[in-house]
Design a protein around this nucleic acid. Sequence first.
DNA 1: CGCCGCTAACTGACCGGTCAGTAAGCTCGG
DNA 2: CCGAGCTTACTGACCGGTCAGTTAGCGGCG
Lengths: 210, 210
Amino acid sequence: MRTGEQRARPRQGLSRERILAEAARIFNRLGYHGATLDDVARALGVTKAALYYHVANKEELLFQCCKVAIAIGLEGIRRAQAETAAPDEQLRRALAAYIEGMTDQLRGSVVILEEGTLSPEHYREVKAERDEYERELRGIIARGVAQEVFVPCDLRLVGFALLGAMNWIPKWYSPAGSRSGREVAEVFAAYLVRGLQASGRAPALTAGAP
Amino acid sequence: MRTGEQRARPRQGLSRERILAEAARIFNRLGYHGATLDDVARALGVTKAALYYHVANKEELLFQCCKVAIAIGLEGIRRAQAETAAPDEQLRRALAAYIEGMTDQLRGSVVILEEGTLSPEHYREVKAERDEYERELRGIIARGVAQEVFVPCDLRLVGFALLGAMNWIPKWYSPAGSRSGREVAEVFAAYLVRGLQASGRAPALTAGAP
DNA sequence: CGCCGCTAACTGACCGGTCAGTAAGCTCGG
DNA sequence: CCGAGCTTACTGACCGGTCAGTTAGCGGCG
């Protein structure tokens, strides 16, 4: 029953992972309140009651989605920091990783926390983790500014701009579209970093194919 | 009875403008489906039934909010194009105008069109206008690229990045916060334009007071 | 001036549909 | 033959929408 279990011997499979991915996609499309559990169940090819075998309730489903999304983001930052020391490259990789996660893994960021959707305790937990994520992001930017790789800026506002551009992606992205998640990630990350880079060092924007 | 009338001689005032502004704020906070008409009515200091005296139904309320938001955006573009010929400055002013509108006038962009919230006809209409807005925005960027003021880029993706950063603002902005709508507008517009500008021409990011 | 009739603006109670959540039973694989 | 993994069938609450009624002000008629 523990989280870590995907005992994969299911009759036709309803792993926690699949449930969360599908739920995230539906929540993103219809909005949390607009989506019914029947919608999620139908997308998974089961009935609503089956969902209740795996999750406690609708709110917990959203909660788990949020945790996964933030975990993807934090993991991206950690990897970026491990792979390079240059703040601009760190930021680029961190953003790209988050975007790839949102487009390919968990479809739909869901961090679109409407008020009153999560229970107070869950809200506090998610907010704390999300704040941690934002703080890390701002930290990278601040170091970039200190090293004069980035121009001085309002960390909070620029951070919100980055987050906004990325969190908006699930609203229009489709895996069937002309751009893959990776391509979107590259273009977005390059553009978002470029707006911060000190003059003269910023590379062009195009990524991959012309 | 026509739309253009706000013949305001109401007992205590429930103008179309006030209703839309408050509805936008509530919809933005709770999400369209998460917000009840009682919420909106309470915020206006009346009962739900009073709302129905002024609007046909909940969906129409959202529809009107969307129209106002897009109108603000399009008006911003028109003014920007009338005021200056330089694509980068045009873009900067257009974005700033939209942001100011979203923060000060209509509080909450609401263009966060979740699927199935608007009727097919209303959806078509809003989508058409929104597409028009996006097309105009891309047009400015395209001209900037042609004049080598902007670096070459994927117009569609960059457009989405701009829109995302801006549409996210209502999620965190508060008029009681440390930054006014105008300040947010200036910083965002400067940052978002800067990411496109050809090297060497981009100015710094800080705007207004430190 | 005064008060009569009208309407614009609003209230409170209510109905019906929808949806989160539950209960109880069926069905395989081991 | 047991129980994990599901189903069908249901309940209760909540919310969009309606409607009969109330209140406030305005315009006109005597």
